[in-house]
Amino acid sequence: MSDQPLLKVRNLSKFYGNRIGCSNVSFDLWPGEVLAIVGESGSGKTTLLNCLSTRLMPTTGSVDYHMRDGQYRELYHMGEAERRFLMRTDWGFVHQNPADGLRMTVSAGANVGERLMAVGDRHYGRIRQTASEWLERVEISTDRIDDQPRDFSGGMRQRLQIARNLVTGPRLVFMDEPTGGLDVSVQARLLDLVRGLVNDLGLSAIVVTHDLAVARLLSHRMMVMKDGHVIEHGLTDRVLDDPREPYTQLLVSSILQV
Score class of each variant (00 low, 15 high):
A215F: 06
P58G: 12
S204N: 01
G202W: 07
R19P: 07
Y65R: 12
M1D: 08
Y72A: 04
S219R: 03
T59Y: 05
H95W: 15
V239P: 07
P31W: 02
H123S: 01
N97V: 08
G70W: 11
L166F: 07
R128P: 01
F15V: 01
Y76L: 04
L49S: 08
V214Q: 04
I145K: 04
T60P: 00
E177C: 08
R115T: 15
D121K: 12
L203T: 00
E232L: 13
N18H: 13
V239F: 08
D69P: 10
A118G: 02
L56W: 02
T60Q: 14
G17Q: 03
I37L: 08
E40V: 10
T54Q: 04
M57T: 15
A163T: 07
T105S: 12
M222W: 10
N111T: 01
T46I: 01
H233I: 07
S254P: 10
S2I: 07
P178D: 06
W91N: 03
K8W: 06
E139H: 15
V34P: 03
A118N: 05
W30S: 03
R159E: 14
H229D: 14
D146F: 09
D211T: 02
G180R: 10
L250Y: 13
P243H: 01
N18S: 11
E82Y: 09
T59L: 05
L49Y: 03
